[in-house]
Each structure stands twice: as structure tokens, then as C-alpha cells.
């Protein structure tokens, strides 16, 4: 997308404006555009501006291919060719230091920034741990790289502390990934993301592969840690009901643009964008009315089959 095209501001309400009062930003993205430089060029993220505040959980909702993961990678400088951040700025407002221009970081500065300030929990908990080294070595790796001053004993005690923090028995330090269940692997991933006390954690579909009961346990853990440690979270998922439950604010992405951003309450009670309403309508309520879902023939069930189905 070229700089001349302007994108409409995402929809939001007065409640959103009221929520923002007095909030301190921790990560600001301004007019970020990301292209996949293939033939023809794919504009995955178009002129997106987003501010993450200290200690908040920001939900990023959208369907496959809407650019939400690409945007998250852009915030953390993880884009690999052919993906390219073509324009825009990403600024990290360090709690104990000057602002960092994330886009301009290179080499050692980038290495030091990543994971230390902004860490990430990746999609696919089941496969993102290294299968051939133990949990102890993997947690130790992070500390060894970023905290070279730590002794072996300090690393071991910090690793045990981290596992304790996410509710995994520290005896599991000597386990390998295949000896852990899906939920435990995801907890270890979260422990790893917490290792350096980051100010921002980006979580990309962290619970999608898990059963609902396990998922609920992990979500509680994330919420609890957030209260205790005060990091901010960007939580990416297509599961809007889940986001509504855990987020402070929700941004809805459609075709590379944020079309609506508002507090969770406002999105739930008075979603403005038709796409947000459609997303909300895609989840039949568990205990309420059946909504657009019609099985027995009365009503207008057919219209829901629609051309998009």
C-alpha cells in the first residue's frame, strides 16, 4: 500500500475514549504496512496504527489470512522475506530507559531487544519446543544468551522459579517436550516467554490446539501472571467469545486493516462494524437463544449459508 492511500480510522465508541484516559503506552505502531513481496504483491497489513498500554490485554481478532499474525511478527521484527515492513514506525516505550525505534534496530541491539522487552508465545504449542533438549536447557538457553552474568546455579534456580510461576512442577526441568502434555508444553512456552521479565508478551493463538478445560486453566494463569507481573499482552485469536472474556480491549482485523477497536464490553454490547457483528453472530450462544442458527426449518436459516460460506 502506498503512502497516498488513506485508510479510515477504526470504529470505536466513547467508552473506548474514556478507557484510554490516563493510560501509559508501552508499544506504539503507527501506519504500519506489511507486504508479501510475491507476484502479485500481497498487502497483508495496510496502514495499521495500534497502541498497547502498560499492563493491558489487547485482543486481536480476525480470521485466517486477515494479517493478524503478520502484524504481530512485524511488531516484534520477526518478519522473514518475502514479508517486508514497507512503511510505518513501531516504538517501544521502555519503562527504564529511552524509547526504542523497533524498526531501526539491527544486529546486536535487535538481539538484545527481542525476548528481553517483547517476548512471544507462538502458535502451535505442541511443536514449538525443541524436542532434543530438556526443558532445563531450553530455559537456560534464554538466560545464557540474555543474562550472560548469571551462574549455572542462578540459572537453575530461576528456571525452577519460572516453572513454579506457571504452575508446572519444577521436577519437570529434566523432562523433554514429548514427555509433557499439550497444556504443560504451553505452560513451559509461557515460562520461557516470561524468563526475562518482558514488558510486552505477544501470544499468537496460544490455546487453540488445547481442550477447553486445559485452555481455561492456561487463560487463568495468564490473567493471574498479568496481575502479578504487570506485563501487557497482545492476544491473537479468531475465537471472539474467548477474547471477550479475557481482554480489556479488542481490535478486529479484516483484510489487513483494523476495522474496529473498542473495550470488550462495548464490542459485546454495541459492536459497530458489520463484520464484528457477523463474527459475534458466528458463535451460537451456549445458554441463550439460538441466534442465526436454525435447524428445524422455521425462520431464515438459509440466508446464513451465504456466498461466503
Amino acid at each position: 500500500m502506498t503512502a497516498t492511500t488513506t485508510t479510515a480510522e477504526p470504529l470505536s465508541s466513547d467508552r473506548h475514549a474514556a478507557y484510554l484516559v490516563g493510560k501509559e503506552p508501552v508499544l506504539t505502531a503507527r501506519h504500519v504496512s506489511i507486504d508479501y513481496e510475491v507476484e502479485p504483491v500481497v498487502h497483508a497489513v495496510k496502514d495499521v496504527s495500534l497502541t498497547l498500554h502498560r499492563g493491558e490485554i489487547l485482543g486481536l481478532a480476525g480470521e485466517s489470512g486477515c494479517g493478524k499474525t503478520t502484524l504481530a511478527y512485524g511488531l516484534n521484527r520477526l518478519l522473514k522475506p518475502p514479508a517486508l515492513l514497507t512503511s510505518g514506525t513501531v516504538t517501544f516505550h521502555d519503562q527504564d530507559g529511552p524509547d526504542v525505534d523497533v524498526v531501526a534496530l539491527t544486529g546486536d541491539a535487535l538481539r538484545a531487544f527481542r525476548w528481553d522487552k517483547v517476548s512471544m508465545v507462538f502458535q502451535g504449542a505442541m511443536n514449538s519446543l525443541n524436542p532434543v533438549i530438556s526443558v532445563r536447557d531450553q530455559l537456560g538457553d534464554v538466560l545464557k544468551t540474555h543474562r550472560p552474568g548469571m551462574s549455572r546455579a542462578e540459572r537453575a534456580s530461576r528456571s525452577a522459579e519460572l516453572l513454579e510461576l506457571v504452575g508446572v512442577d519444577p521436577l519437570r526441568l529434566d523432562s523433554y517436550a514429548h514427555e509433557l502434555s499439550g497444556g504443560m508444553r504451553q505452560r513451559v512456552m509461557i515460562a520461557m516467554a516470561l524468563a526475562l521479565d518482558p514488558q510486552v508478551m505477544i501470544m499468537d493463538e496460544p490455546t487453540t490446539a488445547l481442550d477447553v478445560v486445559v485452555q481455561r486453566g492456561i487463560l487463568r494463569e495468564i490473567m493471574r501472571l498479568r496481575e502479578q507481573l504487570g506485563f501487557a499482552v497482545v492476544f491473537i485469536t479468531h475465537d471472539l467469545p474467548l477474547l471477550l472474556e479475557i481482554s480489556d480491549r479488542i481490535a478486529v482485523m479484516l483484510r489487513g486493516e483494523i476495522v474496529e477497536i473498542d473495550t470488550a464490553e462495548a464490542v459485546f454490547e454495541a459492536a459497530q462494524h458489520p463484520y464484528t457483528r457477523r463474527l459475534l453472530g458466528s458463535f451460537p450462544s451456549l445458554t441463550g437463544d439460538r441466534g442465526a442458527f436454525v435447524r428445524t426449518g422455521e425462520g431464515t436459516g438459509e440466508s446464513q449459508e451465504g456466498p461466503h460460506a
Binding site: Q215, P241, L244, E265, G288
Partner: peptide, 9 residues
Amino acid sequence: AAPEPANHG
């Protein structure tokens, strides 16, 4: 454990 939007917050 099932998410319920009405439980936001």
C-alpha cells in the same frame, strides 16, 4: 470452561 461472551470481565 466454554467461553461465554456474556461473561466478559
